[in-house]
Amino acid sequence: MEKRVTFKGWLLPLLLVAPQLAVTAVFFFYPAGQAVWQSLFIPDPFGLRSQFVGLGNFEFLLGDSYYRASFVTTAVFSSLVTLVSMGAALCLAVLADRLIKGASTYRTLLIWPYAVAPAVAGVLWLFMFNTRVGVISWYLGLLGYDWNHVLNEGEAMGLVVVASAWGRVSYNFLFFLAGLQSIPRSVIEAAAIDGARFWTRFRTIVFPLLSPTTFFLLVVNIVYAFFETFGVIHTITSGGPQQATTILVYKVFADGFVGQDLGSSAAQSVILLIVVGTLTIIQFKYIERKVHY
């Protein structure tokens, strides 16, 4: 799509794009290029010179059991976050959609956790499940369950998943509710007249009509779980115990800044770049299709 009208001249538009071009070049393209470049080198221990290793860093990574474990961890983590946050949001949205009045009140009550930073959410949930002072862990103890996410890998994963999904419910709820409300009442009423009960209606009419929203949220939530949950992991588990919650982004940070292994960290960045690039392309493809409706 192009505008019919344009203004003349080329100096002014170049001046207009200059600020964005400068910021993007310095803080985006140069670092991204560096990431790719560094991924091909191994620096010596003193950081004075680097040795070119080609795809050696990648080969090493793919053979590294820790890295492969981190991949699996990320897959499990993002699937769970997506499932939990979308599942809860869909239930709430379906309930709110059934109300003639009051849906917007519940919306107001439910959307604000979106604004809570993942890192802050991490601190809140850490507080509830803290092994020493946590309220929930204490009551679990009363029931005879000894909660200890500092030592138990499964519990650690469970906690970061719930803490990550918590704020995300708002976001998904908002989009699900909008999706549900955009389904024409007449379609549902027609199904009701055809004798379909609530559950049948949901399964055969509502859910299929909601599938564009669901697919969109699926992609967006996976991207969220991949990247934006760093704060949750860092505040609650720092990747532990035994790397049980070390997702890929956390590992880039841990290897690059804590471990100072720049080559490997850069190679990991490049792999992440490919992953997120693929997801973005899927998302754009989907949007294109939606536009063609």
Binding site: P13, V17, Q20, L21, T24, V26, F27, F28, F29, Y30, P31, A32, G33, Q34, A35, Q38, F227, E228, F230, V249, V252, F253, G256, F257, L262, S265, A266, S269, L272, L273, V276, G277, T280
Partner: peptide
């Protein structure tokens, strides 16, 4: 213009988390 458009389009695909180490150096 077209080149600029595609350059900034690329930036949509990379969150800051992916390029932290080199960005830090810059």
């Amino acid at each position: 213009r077209q080149l600029f458009f595609w350059l900034i389009f690329l930036t949509l695909m990379l969150p800051v988390e992916v390029r932290i180490v080199p960005t830090y150096e810059v």
